[in-house]
Design a protein around this nucleic acid. Structure first.
Lengths: 341, 341
DNA sequence: AAAATAACTGTCAACGTTGTCAGTATTTTT
DNA sequence: AAAAATACTGACAACGTTGACAGTTATTTT
């Protein structure tokens, strides 16, 4: 009844060879005669033998990696996860998903345990975890392989292979686009000093305004979370101003969606009365009305690249794969009005 | 430089005890003197020893489970995943994520390998995979533990512990609500004969209409996928009818969101000109304008329950946990107009 | 024809745990 | 005071695989 799973030795017995030979066949090692190879393969087939991953892991380096994130945005997480997963699958690696709370001290301990217990051999870190170089250093000290995804025009340091995204350039491009459409009072929603992406986008926004000779007005820069509700609240705050903006730059698409909602509540037509743009090109940015003008962030590609780099690092620990920068691109849709000069 | 990870034997040597005693301390077994326990614990602390999960797995039953899905809806997947993950964490289990294509024959082989190679000890199946009893039987034959989530008023069979959701009752409740608001021409968007949830909701829709003495009109029942784009297309088809409906029942929130978009394109106000309802209570259903009336589907709770059942089954293979039904509840928001009789 | 190489195959020791069983003190019961 | 139970500790064999190394043939080179 129990029908224990067949082991390599069962195969060996039935094929009349040593179990080491079976191992050779399974791992496609050289110098096995075709005759024996065929015989063994036949037995494997009939027994439906599958090598035990656990036992194999005792003799080899781990082939699991962890995706650690602290992000409430399900689209972001899924896109990342799918990118990583596709790469893992191609290379025969496994993925351990680890959502966490970066505010808590638990993160370090959880990760330390994952590495220490050999559960995973490497870790992919996304913001804000990836910006914590203490954490990165601790992981490296535990022999973990680390690849991180950060915001910036270049990697912040040489701790580990890094994927970087130039939020500042994209924030600037977006703001320049708004300026080119004739907007002069442009609000920035979702500033967070502790969030590199946010700061980068903000810097780009400031730089573009400065280049255009426009003073940044502090009442037009509103701090808040990257969520829909926060977007609603920030937009309400903005619209309560004596002289509100004509365009609104949401630091991500969720904020922009919240802005869309808040504008609608105030009976404002978008884009006729208020232009709104987002950032991320998340799937729903083309499902809103009007469709959001935004910045495309190739999450799945970045994640796949991160996974590829991490796997390379795990297989060839001595060769550091080079850093890799990703380019962000404006996606122009229907949420911006061209103002008459 | 390599600084190999400490093993149980390193701890034993430093503590001056046998490695078996360390094992006892680590696993909190009885009959270890407090004195030795303290000494061992101190060494564990200083060495930062973590038991090797892989080695441990060679002697114990696997404590990983797989979440297998074939669903393009990221909210659904994330909610499920989070529910499972929270339960896994509480019980010290690991989760392997396995997106797949249920159309392909690969599924069976992939799952077979996961089980056969001892990568996971159990599997959580969601629709449409969970409706494939051949697949369930194959997994069971491989000694896998299986818990599935299906649509229905009761489990379809006794193959394995099952979580079931009564879509028909909810579809009926929703339709009755629409009828109570005075609607008589109600369209159903997203019928799919190969999709139990869809069929259940459709049956509820039909039953409610029949009870109200209203004939179902085939032109008001439109087949299509559970996606935004499909929702747009189906709504366009509906609105092209000589006499369109006054209310539209989208089989899920994405379809409803597509309907919202299509209505807007046709200059129709929702709900004034057309009432629209969805199904699932996904996060974005309260971020649309107007906020969608929908049915709450407790995905995270269902998933957590599934994980709890599966873990129980893995720990106590002889005690089948009982099936479990989940109730769906109407969430009334702003997308339905009350018609004057 | 002998030596050297290439082509195969098998034996055995790891890997780091947990389970079984045996052994030694210490306490309790008879 | 002896016997029995309880409390504790350690030796050793598993678990299923891979790696190192040692054989044994068959083929090529000298």
């Amino acid at each position: 009844m129990t029908a224990k799973k067949p082991t390599i030795k069962d195969v060996a017995r039935l094929a009349g060879v040593s179990f080491k030979t079976v191992s050779r066949v399974v791992n496609n090692e050289a110098w096995v005669s075709d005759e024996i190879k065929a015989k063994v393969q036949a037995v494997i087939e009939t027994l439906n033998y599958q090598p035990n991953r656990t036992a194999r892991l005792m003799r080899t380096a781990p082939f699991s990696l962890a995706f650690v994130y602290d992000n409430p945005n399900s689209h972001y997480v899924i896109e990342m996860q799918n990118g990583i997963l596709s790469e893992c699958r191609r290379k025969g690696f496994e993925l351990v998903i680890h959502p966490t709370d970066s505010g808590s001290d638990l993160v370090r301990q959880e990760l330390s345990t994952m590495i220490g217990s050999n559960q995973v051999g490497g870790v992919i870190l996304t913001p804000p975890l990836s910006e914590n170089s203490e954490l990165v250093q601790q992981l490296l000290a535990q022999q973990a392989k680390v690849v991180r995804i950060v915001s910036g025009a270049a990697p912040p340091d040489e701790l580990c292979p890094t994927i970087y995204v130039d939020d500042e350039a994209a924030g600037r491009a977006m703001t320049e686009y708004l300026l080119a459409q004739g907007h002069r009072r442009i609000a920035f929603l979702g500033y967070r000093a502790d969030h590199r992406s946010s700061v980068g986008r903000y810097r780009g926004y400031c730089a573009a305004l400065e280049d255009a000779g426009i003073a940044t007005s502090s009442e037009l820069v509103i701090s808040g979370d990257f969520t829909f509700d926060s977007g609603v609240a920030m937009t309400e705050q903005l619209l309560a101003l004596p002289e509100p903006a004509t365009a609104l730059f949401g630091c991500n698409d969720e904020i922009a969606a919240g802005a869309l909602f808040a504008a609608r509540m105030k009976q404002l037509a978008v884009p006729a009365d208020l232009s709104i743009v987002g950032f991320e090109n998340s799937p729903f940015s083309r499902q809103t009305w009007p469709k959001l003008t935004t910045v495309h962030q190739p999450n799945a590609d970045m994640a796949a690249k991160a996974a590829a780099m991490l796997i390379a690092l795990m297989l060839e620990p001595d060769e550091q794969p080079p850093h890799c920068g990703f380019h962000l691109q404006l996606v122009i849709r229907d949420s911006v009005e061209k103002l008459a000069k």
